[in-house]
Amino acid sequence: MEYFIQQLVNGITLGSIYGLIAIGYTMVYGIIGMINFAHGDIFMIGAFVALISFIIFGLIGVALPIILLLVLLIAMLFTACYGWTVEKLAYKPLRGSFRLAPLISALGMSIVLQNYVQVAQGARVKPMQPLFSGGLEFFKNSEFIVTVSYLQIFIVILTIILMGIFTYLITKTDLGRAQRACEQDRTMTALLGINVDRTISITFIIGSSLASVAGMMFVLYYGVIDFYIGFLAGIKAFTAAVLGGIGSLPGAMLGGLLIGLIETMWSGYVSIEYKDVAAFSVLIVVLIFFPTGFLGKPDIEKV
């Protein structure tokens, strides 16, 4: 039982990170109907920016809460610029093209970003000293002591706050309204006087900044990063988005959580080697029974 709770806590933490990345996939898919395969690498860039700023602020010697806030803002800002540029360079010129063109362009962009970071930062793994230590301990009298580290609490709370802001933005503000309108009918949205290109750019900016937060969490949580982390994390988050129903925002959060839980439970109870296999197998099984994911809208054609 205690062991289960420990895995649950670990799973929720991991799921938060996946969920934040998955939102970027699902938003972009919703608004322009393409899978942005470079999104995982945007997450990786976010992690690198966070690492670099952590080191700089660490050297200067700023207090921990201020460091966290500053790194968060810097990582979001830089990564948003990357996301915006990627969209302008690789996807916007292909807007009127056939559906596969931006997809191929996205794969190319992913390779470009990976190699760019490899060249600029080197191929070796980059370690970082843990900033957080300690945590809360539960079930002290039993054999297995459940530890919830302060870092895990920080990650989960930050995720909840961001998801709250984000949900408010999409459902209540006029920016979110414009995004949902673009999702449903881009031509008509333009005819109502809304700058569709700008709305799409903003979508990329929001998606990228959420991914950068996930990147910062990844650096803090694992303490090591390299230029290749974007691939697997990206694929996992994509799986999460599909599992929850691609195009659906609550679906992305739910999917992220599920993938995180499946992974940790599998590594906890079965074998740590096959955790990726487990996550992807669950996706296959779910898609057989729910072809549009858990919260995706079924495509009913009106005749």
Binding site: L169, T173, D174, L175, A178, R180, Q184
Partner: peptide, 29 residues
């Protein structure tokens, strides 16, 4: 926009004024 409410459909058409007033959603937040 079939998946948006009737009211929202009309608000979308007033997006530009609202966007300006909301400081590109910043004040809105």
């Amino acid at each position: 926009f079939p998946a948006m409410s009737v009211l929202e459909n009309l608000l979308v058409a007033q997006h530009n004024e609202l966007m300006f007033a909301s400081g590109y959603s910043l004040y809105g937040l």
